[in-house]
């Protein structure tokens, strides 16, 4: 049982990293970005290319995948989202467009890398017991957890300690007031994509370090990511982190009693149970005014 919890924490930290990025984008742009999952896939394939073609150690690809994810997100904003915002597109139109972006991105990856399942070239590490507990974890498992924690800590410091983070929270609170307070909204949006896309790219590498993957990985990851965001309270990156861990652990623990095919469904059952008690999610906004 504890072994499943441990596996769940590893998977949950990957969910937390990817979900917090998506939640941040939603909070500031009010965009439900279905392409986020494929930005995660993009990060994994950038790392795969660096790892297999250039022989770079997977750990070194992590920051590079962050940068690649950030660049992709900024490019997509310039190409798709900024023009739509300028023309006053509604949230539903933006959401549907994001599905189109997701498909385009995925097929571009299939074109470049093929649809076969693949994996990073990294040494197989032995699973070692954790103290006297009946839990076996490899060094990579630990490193994934640490990397996720560092990413989340970085996000926290950015949001609470920097002027750009303060402006992000202000924009999410009240966009019109942020405008007239002198916030350069375009700049905040650019940083939101850098952070959101970067976390997606890095999250893809972390996922690829724990299991083989193919070009559909992001699409399937998107379901638990959305569940995590909704459990935590949509638009709250901290809620997304909490939701990610909860959904991750719940899915893996369910494997102990249910066939593995039900994993995804378990995530959604947890989501529904949480929403019955906390309709706005665990850390969702209560109306303050």
């Amino acid at each position: 049982m504890l072994q499943f919890v441990a596996t769940g924490v590893v998977f949950g930290s990957i969910l937390a990293v990817t979900a917090s990025g998506l939640s941040l984008v939603y909070a500031i742009l009010k965009l439900t970005n279905f392409a986020h999952g494929d930005m995660v896939t993009f990060g994994a394939y950038v790392a795969l290319f660096l790892n297999l073609a250039l022989g770079l150690d997977v750990w070194w690809t992590l920051p590079l995948a962050f940068i690649a994810g950030a660049l992709l997100a900024v490019a997509l904003d310039g190409l798709v989202w900024a023009p739509m915002r300028r023309r006053g597109a509604g949230t539903v139109a933006m959401m549907i467009a994001s599905i189109g972006v997701a498909l385009a991105l995925r097929n571009a990856l299939v074109f470049l890398f093929g649809a076969d399942t693949t994996r990073f070239d990294m040494p197989v590490q032995p699973k070692v017991p954790l103290g006297s507990l009946p839990v076996m974890m490899s060094a990579d498992d630990w490193e994934v957890i640490v990397a996720a924690a560092v990413a989340i800590l970085g996000l926290h410091l950015l949001l609470t300690r920097t002027a750009i983070g303060r402006a992000m929270r202000a924009l999410s609170d009240n966009a019109a007031l942020a405008w007239v307070s002198g916030v350069d909204v375009d700049r905040v949006i650019r940083w939101t994509w850098i952070v959101g896309g970067g976390l997606a790219g890095a999250g893809g590498v972390l996922y690829g370090m724990t299991q083989p993957f193919n070009t559909n990985m992001g699409w399937f990851l998107l379901l638990p990511i959305f569940a995590a965001i909704i459990v935590g309270g949509i638009g709250n990156p901290y809620g997304a982190i909490l939701g990610g861990l909860l959904i991750g652990v719940a899915q893996e623990v369910s494997v102990a009693v249910l066939p593995t095919q039900y994993r995804l469904a378990v995530g959604f059952v947890v989501m529904i149970l949480v929403l019955l008690v906390y309709p706005r999610g665990l850390l969702g906004q209560r109306s303050l005014s």
Binding site: A163, R166, A167, S172, D173, L177, S181, G182, V183, Q285
Partner: peptide, 17 residues
Amino acid sequence: NVFPNLTVLENLRLGGT
């Protein structure tokens, strides 16, 4: 006309962006 989830100090700093 204020940012409800920001502290008073953060509201003021934002005004001084």
